[in-house]
């Protein structure tokens, strides 16, 4: 489903991703770990087409298409969803209308009729339960005045509504207390299907005890330096990243 080949990407003259390759198959959950500044978040931005990042080499194939040729909204409609590390606030814009707008953008692209506010209200109230949010969240402005945990839950709510093929979760665990982490992780687990793939970017293996990955990758200096099973995450927890950093620079 997703093949990244020898990717090189930069922001403001600084190369952050430097020869990264990664393949994710349908239904797989990949964890991407690494120290600060290793390029994890950059990868999520490059995959979703953030305008600040330029790709200087390599290729990304998604569902047989050249992803790099697609606009950010085309990628979203094609099923790539990013749960942002820092979701932005949008004052005055009603949360429910916003999510409906996104939902309808997708339907429109598929040639389906748009869903009206009444039908959508039913649809979303189902999804709300998944993230244990109150109806009240829907009537507020998008992310405005939300706590860190509420913002993250709102991201997962959107994921649940938009039903992506590939979901990228960028440090979905950062800033969450243990209860919020449980809610978020359980929601993600419920959204796992045989076709839906996940790229879970995280700093800590703690999240991976809740969302159990098929593959764990360690990213250092813009490349994947080691891939393995669940146990790799535990090893990192124990030994830190230094030994991998050293190994990477020795290459």
């Amino acid at each position: 489903m997703l093949q990244i080949n020898n990717l090189i990407a930069q922001i403001e003259d600084q190369t952050i991703i430097n020869g990264l390759s990664l393949t994710i198959n349908p239904g797989e959950v990949h964890a991407i770990m690494g120290p600060n500044g290793s390029g994890k978040s950059t990868l999520s931005k490059v995959l979703t087409g953030h305008p600040h990042y330029t790709v200087n080499g390599g290729s990304i194939q998604y569902d047989g298409q050249d992803l790099l040729e697609m606009d950010p909204e085309e990628r979203a409609i094609a099923g790539i969803f990013l749960a942002f590390q820092y979701p932005v606030e949008i004052p005055g814009v009603n949360n429910e209308s916003f999510i409906r707008m996104a939902y309808n953008a997708k339907r429109k692209a598929r040639g389906e009729s748009e869903v009206d506010a009444f039908d959508f209200a039913q649809l979303i109230s189902e999804k709300l339960k998944l993230v244990e949010m109150d109806e009240e969240f829907l009537s507020r402005s998008v992310n405005q005045g939300f706590s860190g945990g509420e913002k993250k839950r709102n991201e997962i709510l959107q994921m649940a509504v938009l039903e992506p093929k590939l979901a990228i979760l960028d440090e979905i665990d950062s800033g969450l207390d243990i209860d919020a982490l449980r809610i978020v992780a359980e929601a993600v687990n419920k959204l796992r299907t045989p076709d839906r793939s996940f790229a879970v970017i995280t700093h800590y293996q703690r999240l991976l005890t809740y969302i159990v990955p098929d593959v764990v990758h360690i990213m250092v200096e813009g490349r994947i330096v080691r891939s393995g099973g669940r146990e790799l995450a535990l090893e990192v927890e124990e030994r830190g990243y230094d030994w991998l950093t050293v190994a990477a620079s020795a290459e």
Binding site: T48, G49, H50, P51, D71, P72, E73, R75, A76, I77, F81, L82, F84, P87, V88, I90, P91, G92, V93, N94, F98, I99, M101, A102, A105, K106, A109, S141, Q158, L162
Partner: peptide
Amino acid sequence: FFFQQRGIRTEDAMATIINGFCQ
């Protein structure tokens, strides 16, 4: 970008944000 990532065109995003500003 947040709107785009949810599949919404920039023009629609802009109009929505401005309407939010005027709410």
